[in-house]
Design a binder for these strands. Structure first.
Lengths: 254, 254
DNA sequence: ACAAAAGTGTTTTGTCTACACCCATGT
DNA sequence: ACATGGGTGTAGACAAAACACTTTTGT
């Protein structure tokens, strides 16, 4: 027979979906696009698309990210895309998750600094940043039909978003990934506000400062200072080489 | 047009592969099966198979696990399968990972207590437990052709195995998953030997005892004692309800 | 002068480590 | 008696939380 018997397995469509997170105005936000076609036409969804025949999963994710946000695509072998971090999140493949056909979606998580307004691209009729809190609250609350802001996310995207947020919350605890939410040069206070937004807690600025500057490899001084946050000039830092934090940042109990 | 245009996306085969880990004779071991057909005929591989048209990913993993090990299949919604823990690990989809066709494999991680010799099932010509250390060492070392024990794993299974082992190593740090390697009732010393085997370190028995018995919800007394390890009778425990350990177990620096 | 944010010092409190020591069984 | 593993007590090292205090800017 030919290399393999195609009747031995059912054919699947494979897509990548993106959970793109950023921190804007002290709030954790996710990128959503408005669906232009059925099913879930007009509803908000996570950006994503089909994996092509000749590309790998991370490559497909990087391509979709570039198409949806204008972030330059970089070598997918390196997890940095113009300062953004890309990693695989999880795969969703319930038989009924797409009414059209059997689709397996490999979700990816992107952590990005506060970007300019996203560029609508490809098949998405519109793209915007939305507060994660709002997006997840919509799943259970009642809402007005036709309201531009409202409605639950399409498909199982609320579940995927929740998983991505949970991953981001735990990963910044024991890795230096929180710096992926910052501009290339940032202050300790800006980094603290990232933690506060992602975790939804208030942190003691004094202890936070001591902790992050005392963790070897987390931050390296960039040399300058800035007063863009007001008050006394703050030292600028860049992300250091360390990826794993030891000891980890401690998330307050709430 | 019909519900969806099949020419818009390339068809994929979707499989599940299993990293089944256990602790035997103070060593971390993985389940491997001998391949009965090309490619990689005669080589060891991770158990796995095609996802069927009507089952979800966790269901396919649970079915394959039952076929390969004889572990009774339970409700995939609950992560417990006869004392074993099942979770999704990661998805592997490089275009050339299978020479026959485009295959995306959703790897799952299973942590099981020390089982009787595995039952060969389905298309696998043989199944056995192999030391993780040996399996991963084979990837770089030279080996004798034709030796029953030798040869690197098929496909990208060494990478998948390494990822699964790394996941197990970090998860037992901050969750109570180490109990999934134990029989339903176990002693503190048996649990300690699980940590020692998975991490490849020696732990202080006195401090370990204080730590695990002092972490609320980790262990609940089962009521009896045993001398199966020799020495003074040890209290028997069951896994408690807690899944996240706070504070975590601390892995020694090396 | 005052508000605002950055940074430092100090005390208290808790946890990890290392190790001395005792307990209960099998041989 | 002794080896083996189970379990408790305790002193020192170390890190985190809480908070008083100083520094340096903008208005």
């Amino acid at each position: 027979m030919s290399p393999y018997d195609p009747s031995a397995f059912p054919p699947f469509a494979v897509t990548v979906d993106l959970v793109v997170l950023t921190v804007r105005r002290h709030e954790l936000c996710a990128l959503v696009v408005r669906r232009g076609e059925a099913p879930f036409q007009g509803r908000w969804a996570l950006p994503g698309g089909f994996v092509r025949a000749d590309e790998d999963l991370a490559g497909a994710a990087a391509r979709e990210l570039a198409e949806e946000t204008g972030l330059c695509a970089h070598d997918p072998a390196t997890p940095e895309l113009g300062g953004a971090h890309l990693e695989q999140l999880a795969t969703y493949g319930a038989p009924d998750r797409d009414p059209r056909m059997r689709v397996v979606s490999v979700a990816h998580l992107v952590l990005a600094p506060d970007l300019p307004a996203p560029r609508a691209g490809g098949d998405a009729h519109g793209a915007r940043w939305a507060s994660v809190k709002d997006l997840l609250a919509r799943e259970t609350e009642s809402f007005q039909e036709g309201d531009e802001q409202s409605g639950p996310l399409a498909f199982d995207h609320a579940r995927i978003l929740a998983d991505g947020v949970e991953r981001a919350r735990s990963k910044i605890e024991y890795s230096s990934l929180a710096t992926a939410f910052c501009t290339p040069e940032f202050t300790v206070g800006e980094l603290r506000r990232v933690y506060e937004a992602v975790w939804g807690v208030a942190l003691d600025p004094r202890n936070f400062h001591r902790k992050v500057t005392g963790t070897p490899g987390f931050l390296v001084p960039a040399g300058g200072t800035t007063t863009r946050q007001g008050g006394r000039p703050a030292q600028l830092f860049r992300a250091g080489g360390a990826t794993l934090l030891n000891p980890p940042m401690l998330r307050p109990e709430i």
